[in-house]
Design a protein around this nucleic acid. Structure first.
Ligand code: ZN
Ligand code: ZN
Ligand code: ZN
Ligand code: ZN
Lengths: 140, 140
DNA sequence: GTTTCTATGAGACTCATTCTCATTTAGGGG
DNA sequence: CCCCTAAATGAGAATGAGTCTCATAGAAAC
């Protein structure tokens, strides 16, 4: 139901084939705007009867990340999370150290200051990670 | 030659023993203000003839991190880096995507804005990760 | 020196992720 | 449609950072 068109375009561009597994992984990533780990995507697909392997889940995510359709997050716990980037608004994350809840934030001032920092150090900025860790309202 | 006193104090506080291995790991971390991975610390010690195991390197770093003598960095490449915190100035990092060079930066305005963001979301802020990735002057 | 109890080393283990390779399948040409 | 071929897949092996186990070594206290 989601931007299958975009998936097809990207696969076509890289001379990759449109397969049911690739479609299923992308659908699953679009089915919520959550921050999912690879295993949960794999299990969700298996549980809904789709025949797919872990290797394929990882391989597909790789393609999606490469084409900017999915963002990979590293929360420092040894498991990558993924979120779709259909909605192109950039955001960063607040992460609860107790319950794992993830909230998103955007702060244009911080974004601007980052660019200044990079300039000052003569770095050509490509991306950034900005994560605030603490205890959420419910966990304090 | 470095704050061995501080190491002793911390070990004492936790009823842990002052051993040659723990001293060696701490010395190694103090010997430069670099961002080192565990393996490089292990190898440096072995190469200088110190008898120590990987397990002990990891265990010692654990203690040091717990007592705020060392900071753990996660650069998203699957290997933690460590830097001593003798110098208590907080800083964040610029990382070159090509050569791996790491530069440090501090921006009080960003720090303040982060706190505001946390407040707005009713998070009790404990720590943050702020990393700017790009290409350094030499790699552009 | 003896006792006691923690620290250490070697290597087994974990767990997310990647790799291998035999088999299946997409997609283009007939 | 059917064939062909290269690409995709699945199962399970491999990898690699980090952790755990347990027999032995070594601090610290007496
Ligand atoms: Zn919480
Ligand atoms: Zn997000
Ligand atoms: Zn560089
Ligand atoms: Zn640093």
């Amino acid at each position: 139901m989601d931007d299958i068109r975009e998936l097809k375009r990207v696969l076509h561009k890289e001379n990759l084939r449109y397969t049911s597994q690739r479609k299923a992984v992308w659908d699953e990533l679009c089915s919520s705007s959550d921050h999912r780990d690879a295993e949960s995507i794999y299990l969700a697909l298996r549980n809904s009867g789709i025949r797919v392997s872990r290797a394929t889940v990882y391989r597909t995510i790789e393609v999606l990340v490469r084409h900017n359709m999915v963002r990979r997050l590293d929360l420092g716990d040894g498991r990558s999370r993924y979120e779709n980037k259909l909605d192109p608004k950039h955001h960063d994350h607040l992460i609860c150290l107790s319950c794992g809840r993830i909230e998103e934030f955007v702060d244009p001032d911080i974004e601007k200051l980052q660019e200044k920092v990079a300039e000052k150090h003569q770095f050509a900025l490509r991306k950034h990670i900005h994560q605030l860790f603490g205890y959420c309202k419910d966990c304090q």
